[in-house]
Write a protein that binds this DNA or RNA. Structure first.
Length: 320
DNA sequence: TAGTCGTGGGG
DNA sequence: TCCCCAAGACT
């Protein structure tokens, strides 16, 4: 092996022992289900959020693949409430109903819904000790800087990742790479002087050039929300489209009924658009609306953050 | 391949 | 207040 690579592996391993986040609970288990769950929860989601609010409660509710697979989807979504990207919960539930054991090959892992190339590699490395690299956001940024790549090409990045992985200890290597990315090789103000990869990093003099950041303008979407009232109960429906699928929410209409009373506006920022909701109260039930719940009962349903804001606006309104 | 899919942390 | 962005997958 390239002596430089060998030396780099040693530096990474030594760094990991003292500076790595070795206490994360999904790093001290060998249960593939636990590791699988953590990998899915961590997709596009910060470690802190998963660690402090979701990982343990979810495992308490669904301790095994079997218990997850035989649960009601609504209960799984309720556990997932607030974590976002709800298709992840649907896919977990679906998978748990289909298989009894997590497969150990990358191909079979990628065949499961909700598992792409990176998650398959992560499970292979972390649950089954296979000598393969992971290549998520942190590692991607590191590799771009190491090789001064402004516009990362997935194929090239995977090739680099494979050429660099420590096959002697892929578990610690991959965890270390993610930790280096998350704690040192930061998007802004990276801590190069503390980085075990500094001596081989071609981009260390101007790390913020790599990778190139592309900014997008987010459109504003405006909606009229109507809450139909049946005494103290509010109309809700279970969402059926791709967006927030399976969660309960209020109805969006083109034109609010004339008799509806405007009670205020609620805003919410998504990744690719901003939503502004003008909220109306209609003091009668509607034949179009099948389901009505008291605010207390709504608390037991899985609802999204916008709809939670709308409930709060309603509660503020009726108090005044 | 560029858009779509959530939410919260942190600057 | 606004912005970037986080253990990405899917179409």
């Amino acid at each position: 092996m390239n002596p430089t690579l060998k030396s780099t592996h040693t530096k990474i391993q030594e760094w990991y022992k003292t500076k790595g986040r070795t206490d994360l609970p999904w790093r001290s288990t060998s249960d593939p289900y636990h590791i699988y769950l953590s990998e899915v929860m961590l997709q596009q989601t910060q470690v802190k959020t998963v660690l402090e609010r979701y990982y343990f409660p979810f495992l308490e509710a669904f301790p095994t693949m079997h218990s997850l697979g035989s649960a009601a989807l609504d209960d799984v979504l309720k556990q997932w409430e607030g974590l976002g990207y709800y298709n992840r919960a649907k896919n977990l539930h679906k998978t748990a109903g289909l298989i009894e054991e997590i497969p150990d090959s990358i191909d079979r892992l990628m065949a499961l819904p909700g598992i792409g190339k990176n998650t398959a590699h992560a499970i292979a490395a972390f649950a089954f000790g296979q000598p393969v690299p992971v290549m998520e956001a942190n590692v991607k940024r590191i590799l771009c800087r190491l090789h001064r790549l402004r516009t990362p090409d997935e194929k090239r990045l995977w090739k680099i990742a494979y050429s660099m992985v420590d096959k002697e200890n892929p578990f610690d290597y991959n965890q270390a790479m993610m930790d280096i990315g998350a704690t040192l090789c930061l998007p802004k103000d990276p801590k190069c002087n503390r980085c075990p990869l500094e001596n081989i990093c071609k981009g260390k003099n101007n790390p913020e050039y790599y990778p190139l950041k592309k900014k997008k303008t987010v459109p504003v979407r405006e909606e009229n929300i109507v809450i139909y009232l049946d005494d103290d109960r509010l109309s809700l429906q279970q969402r059926s489209g791709k967006f927030l699928h399976g969660l309960w929410g209020f109805e969006s209409v083109e034109i609010p009924p004339c008799a509806a009373e405007y009670i205020g506006e609620v805003s919410h920022a998504y990744t690719h658009f901003k939503l502004k909701c003008r909220v109306y109260l209609y003091f009668e039930s509607s034949p179009e609306q099948e389901y009505y719940f008291t605010p207390e009962k709504i608390g037991k349903l899985a609802i999204s953050k916008v709809d939670e804001k709308i409930v709060n606006l309603y509660l503020d309104t009726i108090v005044k």
